[in-house]
């Protein structure tokens, strides 16, 4: 029998050998700091924009065409503009309470615990590590084994919530096909709303938890041909999870900005029908 090449006396029980004495923290010569920097700026800018918009409490609804921005959907506070709230207004009007108080926290959790965003912010914000083979910015490291990061394991629940919210967003996009006089209408705003919803579905379905739930957890694909096909489909989307994560940030901000601009009267909607 062949034996492995471990010499006796070396290892946990034997004398500890030391690492190569290299003084430079990293010897990387490429621009390894560029990717985390772009992530930092991109995510930082988006979070700033979204926070400002959520607490602006105005310019979120175009009554004429029933355009509602996804940041305010569903609108649940007393100050919701006539026609914008589909589920009643159970919440009081207090400036700290966002209009979409029941959905935004779950959307935030979905993206915070997302396996792609985790990579992005652990690298760009927490510097753990900022890039491959570049030292961790922290002395101690326990990963996701303890509170609070152990709750990253709840990602699948945020995914379930995101599925329901995607349904609401889909409904928002459908009822927006309306002209000023109440009949069928179709404008540039509809294209943007529908495009946003399609990308949101693609991002939500490409989730790693979704991949696991639909079929990844199986041991025998051959016994579950339908789930195998679903898993294959989700796996194809899953490869693009990072791209979809960024695309949806873009479409969300664009949709919101377009609705804000129409609502504030900065420009008018480009109408194709009605």
């Amino acid at each position: 029998m062949t034996t492995t090449a471990t010499r006796p006396g070396v290892g946990p029980s034997g004398p500890q050998r030391s690492r190569a004495a290299i003084t430079a923290k990293t010897l990387r010569t490429d621009r390894w700091w560029l990717a985390p920097l772009i992530t930092f700026i991109g995510l930082g800018a988006w979070v700033t924009y979204a926070t400002v918009r959520v607490f602006m409490h105005k310019w979120y609804f175009v009554e004429e065409f029933h355009y509602l921005t996804p940041f305010y959907s569903p609108c649940l506070t007393d100050r919701c503009v006539e026609g914008s709230s589909l589920f009643g207004t159970p919440l009081p009007s207090f400036w700290l309470i966002p209009e979409a108080s029941f959905t935004l926290p779950f959307l935030l959790l979905f993206r915070l615990t997302c396996y792609y965003y985790r990579k992005a912010y652990y690298r760009a914000f927490w510097l753990s590590p900022p890039a491959c083979a570049v030292p961790d910015g922290h002395e101690k490291y326990s990963g996701e084994t303890r509170f609070p990061l152990i709750f990253q394991n709840a990602h699948r629940y945020a995914f379930y919530a995101a599925m329901i919210i995607s349904l609401i967003n889909t409904w928002d996009a459908i009822i927006a096909f309306r002209s000023g006089d109440g009949g069928f209408g179709f404008g540039l705003g509809n294209v943007i709303l529908v495009g946003n919803v399609v990308m949101l579905w693609a991002y939500t379905l490409s989730c790693h938890s979704c991949r696991h739930i639909t079929g990844g957890r199986l041991k025998h694909f051959s016994k579950h041909p339908v789930r195998y096909r679903v898993w294959t489909f989700v796996s194809k989307l899953n490869v693009r999870h990072m791209q979809l994560a960024w695309i949806t940030l873009g479409t969300l901000a664009l949709t919101d900005f377009y609705v804000m601009a129409l609502s504030a009267g900065w420009f008018s909607d480009l109408r194709f029908i009605g």
């Binding site: 990579k119 652990y122 690298r123 753990s128 152990i150």
Partner: peptide, 9 residues
């Protein structure tokens, strides 16, 4: 496994 923070290096 919990130590991994999926930074994908």
């Amino acid at each position: 496994l919990g130590y991994c923070n999926i930074t994908k290096c």
